[in-house]
Design a protein around this nucleic acid. Structure first.
Lengths: 149, 149
DNA sequence: CACTCCTCAGTGCAAGTTGCATCTATTGAA
DNA sequence: TTCAATAGATGCAACTTGCACTGAGGAGTG
Protein backbone atom coordinates (compact mmCIF):
# COMPACT_ATOMS: atom_id res chain seq x y z
CA UNK A 1 0.00 0.00 0.00
CA UNK A 2 1.26 3.40 -0.93
CA UNK A 3 -1.56 5.07 0.85
CA UNK A 4 -0.18 6.49 4.06
CA UNK A 5 -3.27 8.03 5.59
CA UNK A 6 -6.76 6.66 5.78
CA UNK A 7 -9.26 9.34 4.91
CA UNK A 8 -12.24 7.04 5.29
CA UNK A 9 -12.19 6.65 9.04
CA UNK A 10 -11.75 8.97 12.02
CA UNK A 11 -8.20 9.44 13.14
CA UNK A 12 -8.46 7.45 16.34
CA UNK A 13 -9.96 4.37 14.72
CA UNK A 14 -7.66 1.48 13.87
CA UNK A 15 -9.11 0.47 10.53
CA UNK A 16 -8.27 -2.26 8.08
CA UNK A 17 -8.29 -0.07 4.99
CA UNK A 18 -4.55 0.10 4.75
CA UNK A 19 -4.33 -3.67 4.58
CA UNK A 20 -5.50 -3.36 1.03
CA UNK A 21 -6.24 -6.58 -0.70
CA UNK A 22 -7.55 -8.16 2.45
CA UNK A 23 -10.87 -7.35 0.97
CA UNK A 24 -10.50 -10.62 -0.76
CA UNK A 25 -12.75 -11.79 1.99
CA UNK A 26 -15.34 -10.55 -0.44
CA UNK A 27 -15.30 -13.98 -1.96
CA UNK A 28 -16.75 -16.05 0.93
CA UNK A 29 -19.33 -13.38 1.67
CA UNK A 30 -20.47 -13.37 -1.95
CA UNK A 31 -20.76 -17.14 -1.95
CA UNK A 32 -22.72 -16.98 1.29
CA UNK A 33 -25.11 -14.33 0.02
CA UNK A 34 -25.74 -16.28 -3.16
CA UNK A 35 -26.47 -19.37 -1.11
CA UNK A 36 -28.95 -17.45 1.07
CA UNK A 37 -30.64 -15.55 -1.73
CA UNK A 38 -30.55 -18.20 -4.40
CA UNK A 39 -29.64 -15.70 -7.10
CA UNK A 40 -28.54 -12.10 -7.25
CA UNK A 41 -26.51 -9.62 -9.29
CA UNK A 42 -23.52 -7.40 -8.70
CA UNK A 43 -25.22 -4.13 -7.99
CA UNK A 44 -27.57 -5.71 -5.47
CA UNK A 45 -24.80 -7.69 -3.79
CA UNK A 46 -22.68 -4.59 -3.38
CA UNK A 47 -25.19 -3.03 -1.04
CA UNK A 48 -25.59 -6.16 1.07
CA UNK A 49 -21.93 -6.96 1.23
CA UNK A 50 -21.17 -4.45 3.96
CA UNK A 51 -23.51 -6.13 6.45
CA UNK A 52 -21.62 -9.39 6.33
CA UNK A 53 -18.18 -8.01 5.55
CA UNK A 54 -15.31 -9.45 7.51
CA UNK A 55 -13.38 -6.20 7.61
CA UNK A 56 -14.41 -2.58 7.83
CA UNK A 57 -12.67 -1.73 4.58
CA UNK A 58 -15.04 -0.45 1.98
CA UNK A 59 -15.69 -2.89 -0.83
CA UNK A 60 -15.29 -1.37 -4.24
CA UNK A 61 -17.74 -2.18 -6.97
CA UNK A 62 -14.83 -2.85 -9.31
CA UNK A 63 -13.45 -5.51 -7.00
CA UNK A 64 -16.85 -7.10 -6.60
CA UNK A 65 -17.46 -7.33 -10.36
CA UNK A 66 -14.02 -8.77 -10.95
CA UNK A 67 -14.51 -11.29 -8.13
CA UNK A 68 -17.81 -12.43 -9.61
CA UNK A 69 -16.30 -12.97 -13.06
CA UNK A 70 -13.41 -14.90 -11.57
CA UNK A 71 -15.75 -17.04 -9.49
CA UNK A 72 -17.56 -17.89 -12.68
CA UNK A 73 -14.33 -18.64 -14.50
CA UNK A 74 -13.52 -21.10 -11.73
CA UNK A 75 -16.93 -22.72 -11.92
CA UNK A 76 -18.17 -21.66 -8.50
CA UNK A 77 -21.04 -19.59 -9.85
CA UNK A 78 -22.88 -19.35 -13.14
CA UNK A 79 -24.54 -16.31 -14.65
CA UNK A 80 -27.06 -15.21 -17.22
CA UNK A 81 -28.38 -11.87 -18.43
CA UNK A 82 -31.74 -10.77 -17.14
CA UNK A 83 -33.59 -8.00 -18.98
CA UNK A 84 -37.08 -8.69 -17.70
CA UNK A 85 -37.40 -5.43 -15.83
CA UNK A 86 -36.84 -1.73 -16.23
CA UNK A 87 -33.36 -0.28 -16.25
CA UNK A 88 -30.14 -1.76 -17.59
CA UNK A 89 -29.84 -5.53 -17.90
CA UNK A 90 -28.50 -7.47 -14.95
CA UNK A 91 -26.00 -10.31 -14.93
CA UNK A 92 -27.67 -12.65 -12.48
CA UNK A 93 -25.50 -15.15 -10.62
CA UNK A 94 -26.25 -18.40 -8.84
CA UNK A 95 -24.07 -20.86 -6.92
CA UNK A 96 -23.02 -24.07 -8.60
CA UNK A 97 -22.44 -27.30 -6.70
CA UNK A 98 -18.72 -26.65 -6.77
CA UNK A 99 -19.51 -23.23 -5.36
CA UNK A 100 -21.36 -24.74 -2.41
CA UNK A 101 -18.39 -26.94 -1.63
CA UNK A 102 -16.09 -23.96 -1.99
CA UNK A 103 -18.18 -21.99 0.50
CA UNK A 104 -17.86 -24.83 2.98
CA UNK A 105 -14.12 -24.83 2.50
CA UNK A 106 -14.09 -21.13 3.20
CA UNK A 107 -16.10 -21.67 6.36
CA UNK A 108 -13.56 -24.22 7.56
CA UNK A 109 -10.69 -21.87 6.78
CA UNK A 110 -12.32 -18.90 8.47
CA UNK A 111 -13.15 -21.06 11.47
CA UNK A 112 -9.46 -21.89 11.88
CA UNK A 113 -8.36 -18.33 11.24
CA UNK A 114 -10.77 -16.80 13.70
CA UNK A 115 -9.60 -19.23 16.36
CA UNK A 116 -5.97 -18.28 15.69
CA UNK A 117 -6.85 -14.62 15.86
CA UNK A 118 -8.72 -14.96 19.12
CA UNK A 119 -5.74 -16.78 20.59
CA UNK A 120 -3.36 -14.13 19.30
CA UNK A 121 -5.46 -11.28 20.68
CA UNK A 122 -5.57 -12.93 24.11
CA UNK A 123 -1.83 -13.56 24.09
CA UNK A 124 -1.07 -10.04 23.00
CA UNK A 125 -3.41 -8.47 25.53
CA UNK A 126 -1.95 -10.41 28.43
CA UNK A 127 1.57 -9.59 27.24
CA UNK A 128 0.64 -5.92 27.09
CA UNK A 129 -0.90 -5.77 30.55
CA UNK A 130 2.05 -7.77 31.89
CA UNK A 131 4.51 -5.05 30.99
CA UNK A 132 2.21 -2.09 31.52
CA UNK A 133 4.49 0.86 32.03
CA UNK A 134 2.50 3.50 30.23
CA UNK A 135 -1.20 4.33 30.14
CA UNK A 136 -3.60 2.46 27.96
CA UNK A 137 -3.11 3.97 24.56
CA UNK A 138 -5.20 1.67 22.44
CA UNK A 139 -6.59 3.13 19.28
CA UNK A 140 -4.55 6.24 18.81
CA UNK A 141 -4.15 6.02 15.06
CA UNK A 142 -4.94 3.84 12.11
CA UNK A 143 -3.08 1.03 10.47
CA UNK A 144 -2.40 3.37 7.59
CA UNK A 145 1.33 3.18 8.07
CA UNK A 146 1.37 -0.59 8.12
CA UNK A 147 4.45 -2.27 6.83
CA UNK A 148 3.52 -4.15 3.71
CA UNK A 149 6.58 -4.95 1.70
CA UNK B 1 -3.02 -16.26 -7.56
CA UNK B 2 -1.97 -18.31 -10.51
CA UNK B 3 -1.31 -21.33 -8.40
CA UNK B 4 -4.17 -23.71 -8.91
CA UNK B 5 -3.15 -26.57 -6.68
CA UNK B 6 -1.68 -26.52 -3.22
CA UNK B 7 1.18 -28.96 -2.94
CA UNK B 8 1.92 -28.10 0.65
CA UNK B 9 -1.14 -29.64 2.24
CA UNK B 10 -3.04 -32.89 1.89
CA UNK B 11 -5.78 -32.87 -0.67
CA UNK B 12 -8.69 -32.91 1.77
CA UNK B 13 -7.43 -30.00 3.83
CA UNK B 14 -8.87 -26.56 3.13
CA UNK B 15 -5.75 -24.46 3.49
CA UNK B 16 -5.12 -20.75 3.25
CA UNK B 17 -2.12 -21.02 0.97
CA UNK B 18 -4.02 -20.00 -2.10
CA UNK B 19 -5.12 -16.79 -0.46
CA UNK B 20 -1.66 -15.52 -1.11
CA UNK B 21 -0.79 -12.26 0.42
CA UNK B 22 -2.86 -12.91 3.45
CA UNK B 23 0.39 -13.74 5.03
CA UNK B 24 0.60 -10.10 5.66
CA UNK B 25 -0.55 -11.12 9.07
CA UNK B 26 3.14 -11.65 9.50
CA UNK B 27 3.34 -8.05 10.62
CA UNK B 28 1.36 -8.23 13.87
CA UNK B 29 3.02 -11.52 14.82
CA UNK B 30 6.48 -10.03 14.29
CA UNK B 31 5.58 -7.03 16.42
CA UNK B 32 4.23 -9.35 19.09
CA UNK B 33 7.33 -11.55 19.11
CA UNK B 34 9.58 -8.53 19.34
CA UNK B 35 7.55 -7.25 22.26
CA UNK B 36 7.83 -10.62 24.04
CA UNK B 37 11.49 -11.24 23.32
CA UNK B 38 12.74 -7.69 23.55
CA UNK B 39 15.03 -8.14 20.54
CA UNK B 40 15.51 -10.67 17.79
CA UNK B 41 16.63 -11.10 14.18
CA UNK B 42 15.09 -12.36 11.00
CA UNK B 43 16.42 -15.87 10.91
CA UNK B 44 15.38 -16.51 14.50
CA UNK B 45 11.96 -14.97 14.04
CA UNK B 46 11.30 -17.09 10.99
CA UNK B 47 11.40 -20.26 13.06
CA UNK B 48 9.09 -18.90 15.77
CA UNK B 49 6.64 -17.29 13.40
CA UNK B 50 4.80 -20.48 12.63
CA UNK B 51 3.75 -21.04 16.24
CA UNK B 52 1.84 -17.78 16.38
CA UNK B 53 0.88 -17.52 12.73
CA UNK B 54 -2.69 -16.52 12.00
CA UNK B 55 -2.97 -18.69 8.92
CA UNK B 56 -1.53 -22.05 7.99
CA UNK B 57 0.23 -20.63 4.95
CA UNK B 58 3.96 -21.04 5.15
CA UNK B 59 5.80 -17.80 5.77
CA UNK B 60 8.61 -17.20 3.36
CA UNK B 61 11.89 -15.86 4.59
CA UNK B 62 11.86 -13.32 1.77
CA UNK B 63 8.54 -11.92 2.96
CA UNK B 64 9.74 -11.77 6.53
CA UNK B 65 12.92 -9.88 5.67
CA UNK B 66 11.00 -7.42 3.52
CA UNK B 67 8.41 -6.92 6.25
CA UNK B 68 11.12 -6.18 8.79
CA UNK B 69 12.79 -3.57 6.57
CA UNK B 70 9.47 -1.93 5.90
CA UNK B 71 8.56 -1.88 9.58
CA UNK B 72 11.83 -0.10 10.19
CA UNK B 73 11.20 2.37 7.37
CA UNK B 74 7.92 3.20 9.07
CA UNK B 75 9.54 3.64 12.46
CA UNK B 76 7.89 0.69 14.18
CA UNK B 77 11.15 -1.13 14.83
CA UNK B 78 14.81 -0.16 14.85
CA UNK B 79 17.76 -2.36 14.00
CA UNK B 80 21.49 -2.68 14.37
CA UNK B 81 24.11 -5.15 13.22
CA UNK B 82 25.34 -7.66 15.76
CA UNK B 83 28.58 -9.51 15.06
CA UNK B 84 29.41 -10.57 18.61
CA UNK B 85 29.08 -14.28 17.91
CA UNK B 86 30.16 -16.93 15.45
CA UNK B 87 28.56 -17.11 12.03
CA UNK B 88 27.31 -14.31 9.79
CA UNK B 89 26.32 -11.00 11.35
CA UNK B 90 22.73 -10.54 12.42
CA UNK B 91 20.49 -7.56 11.96
CA UNK B 92 18.91 -7.32 15.38
CA UNK B 93 15.53 -5.63 15.69
CA UNK B 94 13.68 -4.08 18.61
CA UNK B 95 10.27 -2.42 18.92
CA UNK B 96 10.05 1.34 19.11
CA UNK B 97 7.37 3.18 21.02
CA UNK B 98 5.48 3.73 17.79
CA UNK B 99 5.79 0.02 17.22
CA UNK B 100 4.15 -0.76 20.54
CA UNK B 101 1.25 1.48 19.66
CA UNK B 102 1.05 -0.13 16.24
CA UNK B 103 0.85 -3.57 17.81
CA UNK B 104 -2.04 -2.41 19.96
CA UNK B 105 -3.78 -1.11 16.87
CA UNK B 106 -3.32 -4.49 15.25
CA UNK B 107 -4.79 -6.18 18.31
CA UNK B 108 -7.86 -3.98 18.08
CA UNK B 109 -8.22 -4.69 14.38
CA UNK B 110 -7.79 -8.44 14.79
CA UNK B 111 -10.24 -8.41 17.68
CA UNK B 112 -12.88 -6.89 15.40
CA UNK B 113 -12.01 -9.18 12.52
CA UNK B 114 -12.12 -12.35 14.56
CA UNK B 115 -15.53 -11.36 15.90
CA UNK B 116 -16.80 -10.79 12.35
CA UNK B 117 -15.41 -14.12 11.26
CA UNK B 118 -16.96 -16.01 14.15
CA UNK B 119 -20.30 -14.42 13.33
CA UNK B 120 -19.91 -15.27 9.66
CA UNK B 121 -19.00 -18.89 10.38
CA UNK B 122 -22.03 -19.29 12.61
CA UNK B 123 -24.32 -17.73 10.02
CA UNK B 124 -22.92 -19.86 7.26
CA UNK B 125 -23.10 -23.06 9.25
CA UNK B 126 -26.73 -22.52 10.21
CA UNK B 127 -27.57 -21.62 6.62
CA UNK B 128 -25.92 -24.81 5.42
CA UNK B 129 -27.65 -27.12 7.88
CA UNK B 130 -30.92 -25.35 7.14
CA UNK B 131 -30.87 -26.43 3.51
CA UNK B 132 -29.17 -29.78 4.00
CA UNK B 133 -30.00 -31.80 0.96
CA UNK B 134 -26.73 -33.65 0.51
CA UNK B 135 -24.32 -35.29 2.96
CA UNK B 136 -21.83 -33.26 4.88
CA UNK B 137 -19.04 -32.65 2.43
CA UNK B 138 -16.87 -30.30 4.42
CA UNK B 139 -13.23 -30.29 3.58
CA UNK B 140 -13.12 -32.06 0.27
CA UNK B 141 -10.53 -29.90 -1.40
CA UNK B 142 -8.42 -26.83 -0.86
CA UNK B 143 -8.99 -23.18 -1.56
CA UNK B 144 -6.48 -23.50 -4.36
CA UNK B 145 -8.98 -22.46 -6.97
CA UNK B 146 -10.10 -19.41 -5.08
CA UNK B 147 -11.29 -16.51 -7.13
CA UNK B 148 -8.89 -13.65 -6.67
CA UNK B 149 -9.34 -11.14 -9.41
C1' DC C 1 43.55 -28.33 2.16
C1' DA C 2 39.06 -28.82 -0.39
C1' DC C 3 34.47 -29.72 0.23
C1' DT C 4 30.03 -29.47 2.11
C1' DC C 5 26.56 -27.79 5.02
C1' DC C 6 24.32 -24.55 7.96
C1' DT C 7 23.49 -19.79 9.23
C1' DC C 8 22.06 -15.18 7.91
C1' DA C 9 20.46 -11.49 4.93
C1' DG C 10 19.17 -10.15 1.22
C1' DT C 11 17.90 -9.12 -4.41
C1' DG C 12 15.60 -9.76 -9.23
C1' DC C 13 11.88 -10.62 -11.80
C1' DA C 14 7.62 -12.20 -13.87
C1' DA C 15 3.10 -12.57 -12.70
C1' DG C 16 -0.56 -11.18 -10.14
C1' DT C 17 -3.52 -7.64 -7.45
C1' DT C 18 -5.73 -3.27 -6.44
C1' DG C 19 -7.47 1.70 -6.05
C1' DC C 20 -9.01 5.06 -8.74
C1' DA C 21 -10.76 7.15 -12.69
C1' DT C 22 -13.44 6.53 -16.43
C1' DC C 23 -16.75 4.63 -19.86
C1' DT C 24 -21.17 2.83 -21.78
C1' DA C 25 -25.97 2.23 -21.62
C1' DT C 26 -31.05 2.23 -19.80
C1' DT C 27 -34.71 4.36 -17.58
C1' DG C 28 -37.34 7.78 -14.92
C1' DA C 29 -38.02 12.23 -13.07
C1' DA C 30 -37.52 17.41 -13.08
C1' DT D 1 -33.35 18.65 -22.24
C1' DT D 2 -30.82 17.60 -18.32
C1' DC D 3 -29.95 15.16 -14.35
C1' DA D 4 -29.71 11.20 -11.33
C1' DA D 5 -29.93 6.39 -10.38
C1' DT D 6 -29.11 1.76 -11.93
C1' DA D 7 -25.99 -1.64 -13.92
C1' DG D 8 -21.72 -3.55 -15.57
C1' DA D 9 -17.28 -3.09 -16.91
C1' DT D 10 -12.25 -1.67 -18.36
C1' DG D 11 -7.37 0.77 -18.27
C1' DC D 12 -3.54 1.72 -15.92
C1' DA D 13 0.09 2.89 -12.70
C1' DA D 14 1.62 1.37 -8.52
C1' DC D 15 2.14 -2.12 -5.59
C1' DT D 16 2.65 -7.13 -3.83
C1' DT D 17 4.27 -11.77 -3.95
C1' DG D 18 6.30 -16.51 -4.92
C1' DC D 19 10.17 -18.40 -6.41
C1' DA D 20 14.76 -18.68 -7.61
C1' DC D 21 18.99 -17.08 -6.69
C1' DT D 22 23.29 -14.69 -4.67
C1' DG D 23 26.90 -14.21 -1.33
C1' DA D 24 29.26 -14.23 2.85
C1' DG D 25 30.85 -16.41 7.56
C1' DG D 26 31.98 -20.37 10.07
C1' DA D 27 32.01 -25.42 11.48
C1' DG D 28 32.87 -30.06 10.51
C1' DT D 29 34.67 -33.85 7.71
C1' DG D 30 37.94 -36.60 4.88
Amino acid sequence: MTQHTCFRHPKDYPCTCAMGNLYRFVEPVVLFLLKCKGRSYGYELSSELAEHALTDAEIEAAALYRTLRQLEKNGFVRSEWDSGHSGPARRVYALTERGEVHLEEWVTVLDHMSASMVRFVLDAKSECSQSETHEDVVGVATLAGWAGQ
